[in-house]
Design a protein around this nucleic acid. Structure first.
Lengths: 144, 144
DNA sequence: CGGTATCCTCAATGATACTG
DNA sequence: CAGTATCATTGAGGATACCG
């Protein structure tokens, strides 16, 4: 998602002057969870609750995520107060992450979305397939 | 959101070969609703249900959306089978949009997310404010 | 171990102009 | 009215290398 403005304006929560909805909570939330790895990180942490997971463990449980993106994602979640970060001051640093209460409270809505997705993505795929077979010609001469 | 690959791979529902989860339904759904205007369009249409809305009406009810993005968003929703498009063959064309049953079924989960957002975004903002005041210095010398 | 620093690519979105 | 066609910008995310 894209909260900030590619070609428009958009402000921090406090600024005003926007012509369009400036701080619509829903859009802001979707900009966060719509970010490629956030919801997966929350899910993984939620399944582990109330335990904690270390950086490397999280990475193992989120197939395909890069070290950079896990770092970025976690930093964002911590900043938002959805995840708590605990550093154990041992030799090779051990950092633990866990959902805060706020983060945990997001799991319900997120799970509902997951259930919907698992239940209905096949229908969406079917609809797309129908569109693909019944229009490629029109598309060719009106698009491209 | 970004379904397709900025720097990686990603395939249509049918292709395989991905190292990471290829067709995780949840990610695919988030890639759709995470797109800047989709959830707002669904919401507006849901509030109108079971009525229909015309292109221009939709545009009026979604402040800030451009003609192009409304068009793109609606095309995508129709293709996914979440929205039905009805063209009245009159002189200046009149096109009506309404949620399908599938689209309507997504409203529940989406509303739950909206409620969560409206209920908790203030906490997130607060958490961000805390982060801003307690670290700007560290950030300055480790980021930037 | 847990990150951070760079560099690079590409899809999402905006702005603008044109059309059946 | 309801789009489509272009063009430009931006930021998410990947690859890679280095660090306390």
């Amino acid at each position: 998602m894209t909260t900030s403005s590619p070609g428009g304006r958009d402000r921090r929560p406090g600024e005003r002057g926007d012509l369009l909805d400036p701080r619509c909570p829903t859009r802001r939330l979707l900009d966060r969870i719509g970010t490629k790895w956030t919801s997966m990180a929350v899910k993984v942490l939620a399944e582990e609750a109330p335990g904690e997971l270390r950086f490397a463990e999280l990475r193992r449980r989120i197939p395909g995520i890069s070290q950079k993106m896990l770092s970025v994602t976690l930093r964002s979640l911590v900043r938002d107060g959805l995840v708590a970060r605990r550093v154990e001051p041992v030799v090779p640093p051990a950092v633990h992450y866990r959902l805060t209460e706020l983060g945990l409270s997001l799991e319900g809505p997120l799970r509902a979305l997951r259930v919907w997705a698992e239940t209905h993505m096949a229908e969406i795929d079917h609809s797309n397939r129908l569109a693909d077979e019944s229009s490629p010609d029109q598309r060719v001469d009106r698009m491209r």
